[in-house]
Amino acid sequence: MCSIINFFFKMFNTDRSSKSFCFSCESNHNEFLCKDALDSIGQHDVHGHEYGHVSCLQSEHVDPLRYVVLMIQKRICQQKNSPTVWLGASRSIKMSHSFLYVMERGTSPIDWCEFNYTHSPFIAELINTTSNILFLIFPPILCQLFKQYANNIDRGIYIIWTLFAVVGICSAYFHATLSLLGQLLDELAILWLLAFAFGMWLPRQYYPKWINNDRKKFKKVMMLISVVASFAAFIYPWINSFALMTLGIPTFFLLTKEIRRCRIQRIRRLGWRCCICYTAAAVSWILDRIFCDIWSAYNLPYLHGVWHIMIAIASYTVCVLFAYFDAIHNYEDLLPVMKFWPQDKEYGIPYIELKNAA
């Protein structure tokens, strides 16, 4: 159990500035869990309340599984001068001061591998901030390329590209400030993009029976889920991680399934390139978390920036592919074909052209 805890701690705890973790156990039988995690980073006083400049908060009784969840979701540490945050067994977060606290710089429990304020006194992680640029470049281009699709199939495609830009803005804000509000907005923007894309393009054979293959009804259900999850995320931030995994992981498997079914080689090649980009993005994200000390030693703590670039390419390509699969299955009479901009070669920006539409 201790080795598992240490693995999750190393993977999900990324505060490189203080490199400290605080947790206080009231139950003696859990002391070995706390001590094992603390020992891994040089902290030995399990029940003490002060660790240098860091104040530890008391927790309620926790069992080993609960302890893992706590470590994954939030480090229970704050600076002495920061407002106190209590995380109880209910997993709710209650701010002792005003809502403005979540807007303060450095209030997020997550700090990526890039050194803070190294390149700019105003931006915490400059590379992680600016690497979101593709999320802002693609949407205006894609809105123009998908005008015909919007006019003949679904104008909701404009919302998809707008949310794509919102993801980039929220991610840039988060990495520029490392604020808790930025973290929540970043995660919620991704959640809304995934939910809306599911509502538009999930094949009807995967609908629950009570939906009765009604796409409009399914869209309303996905919107309701997004609204509930958005409010819940401010009370239970751990919900974001589970919601994103619940929607994100099935997307990858659905994509591979559709690619295998497709017989058009151009579409298959685009699909597999998309899968490679997605895999490269995931590997970059994981390596940035687990092996940060190695990258820092070589002064290359920028793998999360690589994640932004690769996931931006993979994400918009996934949207284009699912829009194409939906058009082929439900609007075959419009003769949808995959095109690339600016030249119709396979390494441009993909979009859908409807041969039999106005």
Rank of each mutant, 00 (worst) to 15 (best):
E353W: 05
Y207W: 06
I259D: 03
V62C: 03
L244I: 15
F135R: 04
H119T: 12
S226Y: 06
I235N: 06
F12W: 13
Q73N: 07
K74E: 15
P336R: 00
I286A: 09
F138C: 02
K74A: 04
P64L: 00
I76F: 01
M310V: 10
V54L: 09
A357M: 07
P139R: 05
S108R: 03
G168C: 13
E26P: 10
S284A: 15
N330H: 11
A312P: 10
L33N: 13
A232Q: 08
I211W: 02
I127W: 08
F198E: 02
A297S: 13
I76S: 05
W210N: 08
L255G: 07
C292V: 12
P208N: 02
E31H: 00
E346H: 05
V318L: 12
T279K: 03
I264Y: 05
E346G: 13
W161G: 05
N116L: 04
F218L: 04
T279G: 08
G199H: 00
F198T: 09
W238M: 08
W238Y: 04
L254C: 12
Y298A: 08
Y347Q: 11
K147F: 05
V69P: 01
Y207R: 02
L224D: 00
M103K: 07
W112E: 11
F12T: 13
L244T: 07
R268C: 05
I190F: 11
